[in-house]
Design a protein around this nucleic acid. Structure first.
Lengths: 210, 210
DNA sequence: GTCTATACGCTGATAGAC
DNA sequence: GTCTATCAGCGTATAGAC
């Protein structure tokens, strides 16, 4: 199931209906503002089914989390598998994240916004989960291969993906009105070239030295 | 009250005790996992007082939000008031955000993590709030003055502050172990110079062209 | 303004028939 | 495995004394 996508089988099984309904509701209202009854109604299932399948509301959130994390991981892995430079891999990841923010908004929103500590008490935070580790690895490899500037691993990864992730947040919050894909080229340009002006006016050069 | 700081008056008034207790609890457990009784106990106040002062749990969250937003705004404004280039202002904002992530962790955490849509139904998302607007303005001014690379306003602002904000998230989640202030220099370096290696190996130049 | 005690609704969860 | 009906507990909010 590459790239977070998955052509759902025609007759959606019960599990799937529950997860889909829950995802939509969780994203729209927030985990704690959704009751099991809400999910039940939206999924056209009985409460009993929900408890049979997932053992409760937390169970749903948990399953959803691991499922999406897994799709996310496969997406990254498929990028790593391609024959690209690590810099190109970074760009590809950003491109895909932007695309999926547009086409599968709720998936991205759930993974990004959800405070997993609230329903996965002793789970490590999402930033240390494998897909994010894989993203850091790409950057790290890029540094070792001389394609990417030498820098502390955390700083490098945060710089490479931070701007894009920020754009995604702004888009999800409805602050940015245009599709993210429109911004892709400029985002990667700024990312690799830095925010220094191409030609620094003489008058500013001294002050900017700092 | 500059820079998010405020030397509290010795005998803390009731309102203040409630807000402080609520902030700590909200950050630690999440808004929905905190009951009014919890706040009451932690603040050494009665439930009645809470309802008299803030009208309920949402009222507390709301007051807290506006209060901190205000402090945040004053912090930005004080930076704008300084006699600096806009680039230096950006750096200063990042520096201060890093410092306060270390010294006043909960404030930053509340503003960054809290899903305000959940208790402020018809409030615009925080990213469009005035302090963030002010940050974008600094970048915009920098562009117009030729200190900062020409780019779409959203992209420029996201690139300038995205990496730093990402670092803050990682630090708040406990993924980064060292104080953020240790990373400041490298973060701004990467930000302004971009992630291209200073010397690109010949072998990579062709591929990296993309 | 502050407090205690109380009411009421909602929600997560279970029991038990089919 | 699926469903309906029902329970028990928590959490918000209020009433009313001080």
């Amino acid at each position: 199931m590459p790239y977070l996508t998955r052509n759902a089988p025609k007759p959606e099984p019960v599990d799937c209906r529950i997860l889909t309904a829950a995802l939509d509701l969780f994203v729209e209202r927030g985990f704690h503002n959704v009751s099991v009854h809400d999910v039940q109604k939206n999924a056209n299932v009985s409460i009993g089914s929900i408890y049979n399948h997932f053992g409760g509301k937390e169970g749903i959130a948990k399953a959803l989390y691991y499922h999406l994390l897994n799709e996310f991981e496969e997406m990254i892995e498929s990028v790593v598998a391609e024959d690209l430079t690590n810099r190109q891999r970074c760009n590809k990841v950003i491109e895909l994240l932007f695309e999926y923010t547009e086409s599968r908004r709720n998936i991205i929103s759930y993974m990004l916004h959800a405070k997993h500590r609230e329903f996965l008490p002793d789970e490590p935070p999402i930033c240390s989960a494998t897909p994010f580790k894989a993203m850091r690895n790409i950057v790290q490899q890029g540094i070792e291969d001389g394609e990417i500037r030498q820098a502390d691993p955390w700083v490098a990864a945060a710089t490479v993906f931070g701007g894009a992730i920020r754009m995604i947040h702004l888009r999800l919050d409805g602050v940015i009105k245009e599709p993210l894909t429109d911004y892709y080229d400029e985002v990667v340009d700024c990312l690799w070239q830095g925010m220094n002006p191409l030609v620094l006016p003489e008058s500013k050069k001294r002050q900017a030295a700092r």
